[in-house]
Computed example of a mutant assay.
Amino acid sequence: MTNKTQKQLIDDYLKEPTNPPLGKEDSFWANVVPVGREFGSKDYERLVEHDHLVRTARTLSDPASLALRVFLDDERITPEGWVRVCWPNEAIDLLETNAVAEISLDHDLGNDERGTGYDVVVWIEEAVALHGFKPPKMAVHSANSSAREKMEAGIRVIEGLL
């Protein structure tokens, strides 16, 4: 048996077929209470919801019908009608489902080792250039002016690739 990282276990779990679609109680995080609870109850509930959204989008014949509006931020209040994610990998998980219609990005997320909003822009750019990914509508709401300019420049490059 190989030792897999927590992320590899989650990725494997998310790739499992879901026929019939599973409910939130079947979430990876709902079944890994000790691991999930170490994040704190608020983060735990958010992770269960995130897992459910990803799995639901992957089971739909037309994931774009979900038309998710994703808000990447660690501090601001999530606007009504938006799905909050706190880390780049969570935003990318949702983008990979093709269910995201719009994404708004903050740059500084509290732990640069886990990534920044710019990492999402770079992922989208690569996905468009190499894999024909159709990006959602993109906006930047970062208060970090230099990072915001860098991210907006990246979005312009992406738009030029289309």
Rank of each mutant, 00 (worst) to 15 (best):
M1L: 08
T5I: 01
Q6F: 12
I10V: 05
D11R: 01
D12T: 03
K15V: 02
E16W: 01
E16C: 07
T18W: 02
G23Q: 08
E25H: 06
F28T: 00
A30F: 05
V32M: 06
P34Q: 02
R37P: 00
S41N: 04
K42P: 00
E45M: 07
L47T: 04
L47R: 15
E49A: 13
H50G: 06
H50L: 12
D51W: 06
L53C: 12
L53K: 13
V54L: 12
V54Y: 07
A57S: 11
D62L: 13
A64G: 13
L68Y: 15
F71W: 15
D73C: 06
D73P: 10
D73R: 11
D74E: 07
E75D: 11
R76K: 13
I77D: 15
E80K: 14
W82I: 04
R84S: 10
V85P: 03
P88K: 02
P88D: 09
I92A: 06
L94C: 04
A99H: 10
L105E: 11
D108G: 00
L109R: 02
G110N: 04
T116D: 05
I124R: 07
E126Q: 10
E126A: 12
E126L: 05
L130Y: 13
H131Q: 10
G132N: 08
K134D: 11
K134R: 14
K134T: 06
P136V: 02
M138G: 03
A139I: 01
A143K: 15
A143E: 14
S145Y: 10
S145L: 10
S146H: 12
S146D: 13
A147P: 11
R148F: 04
R148A: 14
K150M: 15
M151H: 12
M151S: 13
M151D: 14
A153F: 15
I158V: 04
E159P: 00
L162T: 10
